[in-house]
Design a protein around this nucleic acid. Structure first.
Lengths: 338, 338
DNA sequence: TTGTATGCGTTATCAG
DNA sequence: CTGATAACGCATACAA
């Protein structure tokens, strides 16, 4: 038999309301009474029944963290999410979302329509998915985005410095003597990707290097995208001396392609990425990249959502966390002779 | 205002109990009545309130999938878990568990003690953690393990062929002309690792190759373990011609170490792993490994747990799914002259 | 500062 | 086969 609030009230010789007050840290309880209640709670091993709370409060006390399927880009986020597990009373339900799969859309819809969650954290590219947006607006579900500012919506978000990170990385490559820097961009609806592209261009401009649009290739932020982009550039007249992939995964693909074509990294070609996924320090010869504070981003996003859920919409903000360069073995000075 | 079971009952001109029967596919409802109810449900867009169900059934309708922290070994499982998201009425709460961290132990304890979950799926090495075992037995929590058979416990489990997979891989290396095959083993309390070691030894024995115990190195199933083990073997008199890592992650580390020492893979040294993580086909030169049907393992484990939860302990079984070799570029015939 | 009574939306009991 | 009524455990107006 589980002990309920009534048992505690009886043991502490007070009403259940008083116990409730103590449990929820509400005011208007005299100190001696509060102590009696706390003792009774400890003695009986009382734990509030979360299901009852859910019912009476009309909340699911759980939230969904929506991730993009397939990519490893988000595996670092997942690691943090699984580390958190649940935050306060909120269960965290991580879910991958394939907009193209009816089954996946159905899962998301039932999650929302059956009121199984109170709020949502989204990551690109889910945040631009129309089906999802319709669900959210119909259900008036609170949302926190992990993505740069979207001027079209007024949605709280958490992100890290994309523009600045890309600019610094490009400056670094330029300082190493590189002039022909290939930039492997992501999808155009991926705002962070755009910001990185702008940062790249800003650095070139500041250095007085004329912009060659052939040096920017649109691709996907995954292994294949990087692989294909690098191959394309090396097999044609583009001939970069450095490859700056807009994501670490694409950088891995580029690294693979470059080595497959028997170029030496970094002696002949430098390669770098963006994101600093854990594996990027494990692959040979170590990927130079822009470190994003993913753990903190995830942490802040979840906290912000919980705050919105408990304190109302006003708790939503815009947060941009700093990123920084991480120099490893995949980049080196460009020697004119090679 | 959300529509409740009462609204449906009124609309269908019957009692709430009848509606409940229809919703739960219980018998003893005449067909015309059932139809009326179903129409009313559709017309009103009625969705049962899961919180009320949770309260009255005294179940959390959620389960925890416990993962080992840090390793990528489990990232493939995570991908599948996040794809499933929730199964029937059960929310799936994936959580990483660091037994050494008080915070992590606390999370797990509150999850169980606060009755937030009805059952648990465990993966190595959590399944041998004493703190967890105590929690489970104290709470009498149903568990399904993802690990080979443990004769000490009578716990339902799902796994894939570890022994056979390792044996086949070793046979393959032998067929390629390798005689000195280094085996990078995992922790001794990792049962799957032991089974792989036994498979390796069985293949050697069948081929009449005398067992050299210096060729088996105990290490960790991660990048560093593989890196260190490979270095050790190559810098000493052990001198293997092939390295069989008991996990893909360790194989990556070995691959890194071998290349760092300027050996060519696979021409001079063959390297292979176990598990077939997604990244193993992305790293250069492509890792030969044993494919485990991780998606199916995860699927079956969750389904089994839900069955136990709904149908009682009798639903638990022992399931072993098949694994198979995947040949890529990291292994080749051993030429005596090199 | 404290307590009483009511309701949240289901499922379960037991009588019809 | 069907239905009235009582839990489930908590929070919350509203009194006192």
């Amino acid at each position: 038999m589980t002990t309920t609030i009534k048992d505690v009230a009886r043991a502490a010789n007070c009403s259940i309301k008083t116990v409730s007050r103590v449990m929820n840290n509400e005011p208007h309880v005299k100190e001696p009474v509060r102590q009696r209640v706390l003792e009774a709670v400890k003695a009986l091993g009382y734990v509030p029944n979360i299901s009852a709370r859910r019912l009476v409060q009309r909340r699911a006390f759980s939230l969904c963290f929506l991730l993009h399927a397939g990519g490893l880009e988000q595996s670092a986020m997942v690691a943090k999410i699984l580390d958190i597990g649940f935050e306060f009373d909120y269960d965290i339900l991580p879910l991958t979302y394939f907009p193209s799969l009816a089954r996946s859309r159905g899962k998301l819809a039932s999650l929302i329509n059956e009121h199984r969650i109170d709020g949502l954290v989204t990551t690109p590219p889910a945040d631009t998915d129309e089906f999802l947006l319709n669900l959210i607006t119909a259900a008036q579900l609170p949302v926190v985005q992990i993505t740069p500012y979207n001027p079209q919506a007024n949605i709280p978000y958490v992100t890290s410095q994309d523009y600045q990170g890309a600019q610094q990385m490009t400056e670094h490559l330029i300082a190493l003597g590189h002039q022909r820097i290939l930039f492997l961009s992501g999808p155009r609806n991926h705002r962070a990707s755009l910001d990185r592209l702008f940062g790249y261009r800003a650095a070139l401009e500041n250095a007085g290097i004329p912009f060659d649009r052939r040096l920017v290739l649109d691709s996907e932020f995954n292994f294949d995208g990087g692989y294909t982009g690098a191959k394309l550039a090396l097999m044609t007249e583009i001939q970069p001396t450095a490859i700056f992939a807009g994501s670490d995964e694409a950088a891995w693909g580029a690294l693979y392609a470059v080595q497959e074509m028997n170029y030496r990294v970094p002696e002949q070609i430098s390669v770098c990425g963006f994101g600093d996924l854990p594996q990027s320090q494990s692959i040979w010869p170590g990927l130079t990249t822009v470190h994003q504070p993913i753990d903190q981003v995830v942490d802040r996003a979840i906290q912000m959502l919980v705050e919105i859920l408990t304190e109302g919409p006003g708790a939503g903000q815009a947060v941009v966390l700093p990123s920084r360069l991480v120099l490893r073995g995949s980049t080196a000075r460009h020697e004119a002779g090679l």
